[in-house]
Amino acid sequence: MIGLVYAGGKSTRFGKDKATYHVPGLPATNIELAVEKLTPFCQQIVVCANEINRAHILELVGQEPAVQIICDIPPYDHHGPLSAIIACTGHFSTLQDYLTLAVDYPYLTKDSLAVLARTSNSYIATSQHNHYSLAHFSVSNEQVTTWVDNNDDWRLRSFITNKCVCHPLKYRSSNEFSNLNYREVDLNEK
């Protein structure tokens, strides 16, 4: 299985780069935590960074033998997670199994990720939110680029549910599924 970390966002609402941010009280930066959580389940981990945070991410996790740092590729760049999926799948010639994790879920536990890793064609959902960036699916580069070219639909939700036919893996709502869209979230008590 290939781990894919979405780490290329602009972090506009958060105000700082979320990938390289170190949440107070946690043992490492968000990117280090994401890689550590994926490592038990994935033979290779691909981190999709952006041009601005790529060098810092390389310093933090680039020395890990199973980790590869990439950026979006034209003409499919700057469209969020689907751009990352296209860039990642372009490194593999065949259909692959992917376990995806957005870098802004620092409280996600390895136990929840283990269940997701064991459940093909799924994404994590709570009563309050569907977490499409926490997903497990199989896809090839040809399939994802054809999807985008034919549908002109860059929404991760549409791709995950319609193309990959993923189903919700239901969890109770908790801080574990809080993502860091705003800096105030990082002060939540665990």
Rank of each mutant, 00 (worst) to 15 (best):
A102Q: 08
H78I: 10
I70F: 06
T89H: 03
A84W: 03
D97F: 10
L101S: 03
C71K: 08
S112Q: 14
H91Y: 14
Y105W: 07
P81H: 11
Y107E: 06
Q96W: 09
I73R: 13
L99Q: 08
F92W: 10
I70H: 00
Y76P: 03
G80H: 07
V115D: 12
Y98H: 09
Y107H: 09
I70M: 01
A84P: 02
L101N: 01
L116H: 06
I70T: 00
I70K: 05
H79A: 09
Q96F: 10
V103S: 06
H91D: 11
Y105M: 04
D77P: 03
G90F: 01
P74C: 09
V103H: 03
D97H: 14
A84R: 02
L113E: 01
C88W: 02
T89N: 08
P74R: 11
P75F: 05
Y76N: 04
T100L: 03
S112A: 15
A114L: 11
R118Q: 13
A117G: 11
D97P: 09
L82S: 01
V115W: 12
I73V: 15
P81D: 12
A117K: 10
V115Q: 15
G90Q: 08
G80V: 04
D104V: 07
D104K: 04
I69S: 01
L101G: 00
I86G: 01
L101I: 08
S93G: 15
I86Q: 08
S93W: 14
L116G: 07
D111P: 11
A117Y: 10
D97Q: 14
L113M: 10
T89Y: 06
P74M: 10
I86N: 05
A114N: 12
V115T: 15
L82H: 06
H78R: 13
I69W: 00
P75L: 01
C88I: 07
P74D: 12
D97N: 15
L101T: 02
Y98P: 01
I73Y: 09
L101E: 02
L95C: 14
L108Q: 03
Y107D: 02
S93L: 15
A102T: 09
P81M: 12
I85E: 00
